[in-house]
Nucleic acid binder design. Structure first.
Lengths: 248, 248
DNA sequence: AAGCATTGTGCCGAAAATACGCTAAGTATT
DNA sequence: AATACTTAGCGTATTTTCGGCACAATGCTT
């Protein structure tokens, strides 16, 4: 039993998804935000080492709050990345030095978070030196962060069909079109608006409000809210509205 | 940065699912198999500490092989369980002593595996002191292993709709009824056999063989195989036959 | 005031999916 | 030889879905 590994450092990396009504975006930072002396110009996902007496979800929530100022946001673990060589030697050296630790290996756990992307959020993250990029336009990140991102998107696609998390990406009051755009963006598909409405309303997941969008150069769309009474109990598990609507 | 945790021990625990043509089962062991001196009578999932220069999937594969003798079996990571108090003090003491390590905390990663359950496998695991129990009948396991099992089942349900992994639970040649029983067992539903056949065949996922089941007191059912030519490329991702068939 | 863009609603028919009654066939048991 | 059980498949009535077309409503732009 001499070969048991006991001193892995564990980190979390968060894929923070946002939706602006049109495109699905992810929040990226540059390493220089952590250390101005070490900046190879590459983008990375926000992340951190876990602390003593901290669970991984807590660590992920901490990263999320540091990046966005938000608490109590939907966070889901995706995969764990444990290749002993996922961090190369120079990288490892920097990490040990920066954190004042000693370790042979860093295992990281991927999380994704869903954030409502409004102007306030954009300016907040801008002040933090972070940037929202269209997911479709992200092609290179440092280390294995591109893998973590791809994995998170795959998990998101499945989750969105089976739970009402899509609404975490939308404002409290939203238009039918915004919801349709979101599904189209996440899955890269097109939906027929008339049938989308029919199915959506017959599913009874939306509650209409008396409000309409403003400052648009066409007939303003009515705003809706999620029908939260549907999820009073443990019904969250059984939300499959979007699985039915999207013909997979 | 003094509060960074650097010495978490990492383990894997495997939920090994098997299907006997009727019921979905999971493989359980007793702790006494690891240490005859320490047996509280409770069942647990097979697991192990990860070793140096070993990835988590490799560790899970090692556990699987030790339990079943099988290599190259479908294995999927589910969730990571990182509550600092998930292992109580006496438990922790035993673990440290048994493995000859020193750690304040054990983080575990859940995996599930899918195994064809034939008489040979049952007798093999029996010799190892392990037992196959109906998933529906498992209500108590040591530590947080019940959570790990429940989580694995939830993940399996989703995965089975989106990938052809169901066939990993069946023999190479199987009857339509077996496949139907499997889906019914995993989801706890009933399906109309006539429509099930129509949908299944029109999806073209099966290839018929010239063989039939034997030694049954009724008309023997034809045996089928998975149409592997469907998955020559990367189409595995797009397997949604069962999502269509099961009306969620 | 006219034009434009988009939302929102209704109607309708073709096509597809579904539920289910019914029949025939094949094997072991009695 | 009769019976029991299950596979296998046909056919049809019913329901659901998919889209086309039409048109009213609203508010910005020109």
């Amino acid at each position: 039993m001499s070969s048991v590994q006991t001193n892995s450092a564990i980190s979390v990396d968060c894929v923070i998804f946002g939706f602006d009504g049109e495109n699905l975006k992810a929040l990226l930072v540059r390493r220089r935000n952590a250390d101005p002396l070490y900046d190879d110009g590459g983008h990375k996902l926000p992340g951190a080492m876990i602390r003593e007496n901290e669970t991984l979800p807590e660590a992920a929530a901490r990263v999320l709050e540091a990046s966005t100022g938000l608490k109590d946001i939907y966070l889901k673990q995706t995969s764990i990345f444990s290749d002993p060589d996922r961090v190369d030697q120079s990288e490892l050296q920097w990490i040990c030095q920066y954190h004042g630790i000693k370790t042979d290996r860093v295992v990281t756990v991927g999380y994704y978070a869903l954030v409502k992307l409004d102007p306030g959020m954009v300016s907040y993250t801008k002040r933090q030196g972070a940037v929202w990029m269209n997911v479709d336009d992200i092609h290179h990140l440092i280390m294995d962060h591109m893998d973590i991102l791809s994995d998170a998107l795959t998990v998101l696609q499945k989750d969105i069909l089976w739970s009402p998390i899509a609404f975490n990406l939308l404002p409290k009051k939203f238009t039918v079109r915004q919801l349709q755009n979101l599904l189209e963006a996440v899955f890269g598909i097109e939906l027929d608006n008339r049938n989308f409405r029919k199915k959506l309303f017959s599913a009874g997941v939306l509650v209409e409000t008396d409000e309409y969008e403003k400052h648009v150069s066409h007939k303003p769309a009515r705003l809706y809210q999620l029908n939260k009474s549907l999820f009073s109990k443990k019904n969250i598990v059984n939300f499959s509205t979007f699985a039915r609507i999207i013909n997979i």
